[in-house]
Design a protein around this nucleic acid. Structure first.
Lengths: 196, 196
DNA sequence: GAACGAAACGAACGTTCGTGCTATTACTTT
DNA sequence: AAAGTAATAGCACGAACGTTCGTTTCGTTC
């Protein structure tokens, strides 16, 4: 790994932390350069535009998300255990960055702002929803969930729980947010429990 | 109503629409002045700072939220009917502005940005959660919901459903978002149904 | 209709934004 | 160790930001 790639990665790490707090649009070349002990032009040289920087921050985050949330969950047994691992890992992910999940901040910011950043973000979110739905389907096959339950609805519901946790903990500073999210998650599973 | 109040209200109306798309921080005096056919200084004269503008946009939105969502719901019978009215009205509210619910956009933007804007926003969100919890409590009294259900947990869950709908419809452009939200809402009620 | 205050304007302020240049330093490779 | 390339700094640019100023136009009131 060359020196350039090294500092570029360091820049993206710091940029991820900043963007989790102020969003991808809130990123500025100047402040980011100051926080990485680089000149504006020195940092700018690694990217050719601000949009390219935003895209690379996004890509960097997606890679880290897969490493932290998705891949480790694949070690858990198919179906419900894997779903629980996914959710538990996501909670860790949410706490890993100072401003919480980077994608949530970006989602609200870019939902009315067309362009490649939004496109990439949408695709990553759909990938996540597909992953959840797929794990749910294998849970049906394993007999952990009702066969008539809708996997896409479950993915939608889980996404809502994640958003609710982010808001309750970040904006409202609700100390009960963690348990609230756990309760909501258990309720999500309970409503899909196979008929006993 | 004087001329000044009239244009000030017009400014706040337009600012609400803009802020629903780009957030309160994304508001700029210059573009807002252009969209209201005013000069920058002419518009600025109505407010003494950008922060004051943001606060007044927020207050303006809160008043409209009460008019559109909360007050009409009080016409519905206590308990479950009123809860359904609250949710239905909120869906209208979400569609009323071009960028969806103004508070959601602001929430993500200011969750790591201390100051009076954030403080006011937090207070309004807690008021909303309290309203939902209170309606739920009267629903328990009416025998619509299980007595052992947690009203605050319900408010948290409903908030999550709202957030999920906002994201699915705004960012992902999911045409099924509406029905997904309805299904989630019905599930919320079903899990609180009194033991039959 | 005269007089007064409110409302809007145009111009400019200092700052920061993203983005180009041109050197110069630091790595890498032979 | 020399040569060549990659990385960083320094400087400057045009534009947009929030803000202030002095001036002019408009509404309102006597």
């Amino acid at each position: 790994m060359s020196k350039g790639d090294l500092t570029r990665t360091a820049i993206l790490d710091e940029a991820s932390r900043v963007a989790s707090r102020v969003g991808l649009g809130g990123l500025t070349i100047g402040t980011l350069a100051a926080q990485t002990n680089l000149s504006k032009s020195g940092l700018f040289g690694h990217f050719q535009s601000k949009e390219a920087l935003q895209l690379q921050v996004l890509e960097h985050g997606i890679n880290r998300f897969v490493d932290v949330v998705v891949r480790p969950a694949l070690a858990a047994p198919r179906g419900e255990p894997r779903m629980r691992a996914l959710f538990a890992n996501w909670l860790k992910w949410e706490s890993a960055l100072p401003g919480g999940c980077l994608f949530i901040a970006a989602a609200v910011e870019f939902d009315d702002q067309p362009g490649p950043v939004r496109d990439r973000l949408v695709r990553s979110q759909q990938d996540w929803l597909d992953t959840v739905a797929q794990v749910f389907r294998s849970g049906i096959a394993e007999g952990h969930f009702r066969p008539d339950a809708d996997p896409d609805q479950f993915a939608y519901d889980l996404y809502s729980v994640m958003l609710g946790y982010h808001h309750a903990s970040r904006l409202l500073n609700d100390p009960a947010a963690g348990t609230r999210a756990e309760v909501a998650f258990e309720m999500l599973l309970a409503t899909r429990a196979p008929a006993g």
